[in-house]
């Protein structure tokens, strides 16, 4: 166990190093250069562009820039080129905004997928199964922004309530329950939109797992000995079908920093995705690279946790 953990950590650190190199190269070798200076503004002279490059070490060779960048990052000193804010503080702020979306989205996905998937598996081939299958595929086939606009227009036109942003604007000094509920309402649409793909995929997966388990001998045995079908499904089958999902908890970790650019743009949600997108547009390398790095760390941590969970829940695996 300990040696597994040790080995994994070493391996993941090496992977992380390569990720950092690759992402650094991708960004720095792409054509075009970052600049806070608009090259087409007549008031900017080439000397100023040069001065900016110097200030951001862009005149140094690549490997020096690499060392500088990660040194600053680990010292917590790296700042965005765009507004001189500390990158980590920026990410943290956006992370807190994306977090509720992530939590509600995950909650919806996980609570909804299981009943849907299980029911579809129990009544497989039936109308319910087929219609949920169809709806699931329908949901993952709609271009996200198209769906979002449809939803917004429908909700706004028929209910006349604001749905954009993190809260109703100009609510002023309302009592805290309504402020809180207002925030929940604003979470609803974007998180539902974010969750549709997840529900579709996860419920299909649940269904497949259930089908797989239901075909096992011990289920047949349980049924043969006359247990009520409900008990067979929900006690014997479900428990074993759940096993792989425990490990999936680790894999949702990277979603923390993901955030959908498209949904956040449409809903004016000041989240991670949009920050990253704006950083790309402004060629704000420190922000792009840091987001990338943090998300790589989360991916690796996620797989690590899921490996560990697997070890814990599945007695057959011993490393």
């Amino acid at each position: 166990m300990l040696s597994f953990i040790g080995r994994s950590i070493v391996q993941k650190t090496v992977t992380l190093f390569f990720v950092s190199v690759v992402s650094f190269l991708i960004i720095h070798l792409a054509p075009g250069e970052p600049s806070q200076v608009d090259p087409l503004n007549p008031k900017f002279t080439p000397e100023m562009v040069e001065r900016f490059q110097k200030a951001f070490h862009l005149d140094k060779p690549l490997y020096v820039q690499y060392v500088y960048f990660y040194r600053d990052l680990f010292a917590g000193r790296s700042v965005s080129w765009r507004d001189n804010q500390s990158v980590l503080a920026k990410i943290w702020e956006r992370f807190l905004n994306s977090l509720p979306l992530f939590i509600v989205g995950t909650l919806i996905t996980w609570t909804l997928s299981f009943p849907i998937g299980i029911r579809a598996a129990i009544f497989r081939g039936g109308l319910y199964d087929r219609s949920t299958t169809f709806v699931a595929y329908l949901l993952i086939s709609i271009p996200g922004f198209f769906f979002a606009y449809l939803l917004i227009i429908v909700v706004v036109n028929s209910f006349h309530v604001p749905v954009i942003g993190m809260e109703t604007f100009g609510l002023g000094e309302a009592p805290w329950p309504s402020l809180f509920m207002d925030r929940i309402w604003h979470l609803l649409l974007p998180s539902v939109l974010g969750a549709t793909g997840g529900i579709a995929v996860l419920s299909r997966y649940v269904r497949a797992q259930m089908l797989e388990v239901e075909g096992q001998d011990y289920i047949r045995t349980a049924r043969a000995k006359g247990l009520p079908p409900e008990q067979v499904h929900y006690k014997h089958a479900l428990r074993n079908a759940l096993l792989p999902f425990v490990t999936m908890f680790g894999l949702i970790l990277p979603g923390l920093i993901g955030g959908s650019v498209i949904i956040e743009s449409i809903f004016s949600w000041p989240g991670m995705g949009r920050m990253a997108y704006e950083a790309i547009l402004a060629r704000d390398y420190p922000v792009i690279l840091t987001v990338n790095f943090v998300s790589a760390v989360l991916v690796l941590a996620g797989t690590f946790i899921s490996d560990l969970l697997y070890l814990v829940v599945d007695p057959r695996i011993r490393l």
Binding site: I108, T111, P162, T168, E230
Partner: peptide, 29 residues
Amino acid sequence: MTVRRVLIFAPTAVILFLLQSYFWVPTYE
């Protein structure tokens, strides 16, 4: 079956909770 009840209750509760927030939000008017 508790498991089954939980499986049905949890999503219903989540969805209802989310939907009821509508009543707290002032309309544009």
